[in-house]
Amino acid sequence: MEIFNWSYAAEVFPTIFRAMFVTLGITLASFAVALVLGLILTLLRRSPVKIIAYLTYGFIEFVRGTPVLVQLFFVYFAWPLVPVIGFEMSAMTAGISTLGIHYSTYLSEIYRSGIESVDQGQWEASRALNFSKAKTWTKIILPQAVPPVIPMLGNYLIVLFKETPLLMAISVNEMLMTARNLGSQVFSFVEVYTIVGLLFLLLSYPSSLFVGYMERRMNTRYMRKAKVQKMKKEDVIS
């Protein structure tokens, strides 16, 4: 008996390949939730109303401090039983919201670092030109805070992608679930899990190369600025 049956592998490959698009869909949908919610959390955390800022901080720490799997079970199995605010969701919705909410707390930290790296003078200039608070954020601060952190956001997209098999725990038919179902029909798991692993690698490795490239590009973009300033300093000395 051979360990790896090539013809069986070829037979199941199309089904797993199709499930890959479910995985990709979950990844993109959760990441979209995380991008938007993460930004909202960042802004709420900076709220001048102290109670809102503290509650947001508490929420972020709570979500980051508990495992995704526990959150997944809670949202899918326990949330519908919560009186008044609880409601039932499909496994897919529950999975996407949980991953989205979980990652929003990481992304909010990234946004925060981006915002803090914007020079204080930018806030002051916005004030002097009488921009409203909302316009200061959308026109001046965020356009400077977000581009430098895009590579970091990209890293989290890849991590999130690799976490999607967790949704198998609530029976979402993503790649790993599909593979297991196929494998258990004939009690042969080597082929299916190998295919799943390779497909993950095939997608995540080029993505991380791309993120690395973006990171270098952003660095040079910002170093150009640093260089200009450094040159000027030397001019003064000479």
Partner: peptide, 30 residues
């Protein structure tokens, strides 16, 4: 504040905007 304008020691131009947009953003938005 609309009566008052200010020029800063460290310029504080908006680095992500052209010179034109540096000068037009506030008149348009404000």
């Amino acid at each position: 504040r609309g009566n008052i304008g200010m020029v800063f020691q460290h310029f504080n131009l908006f680095p992500h905007m052209t010179i034109m947009r540096n000068c037009t953003e506030a008149p348009v938005q404000v």
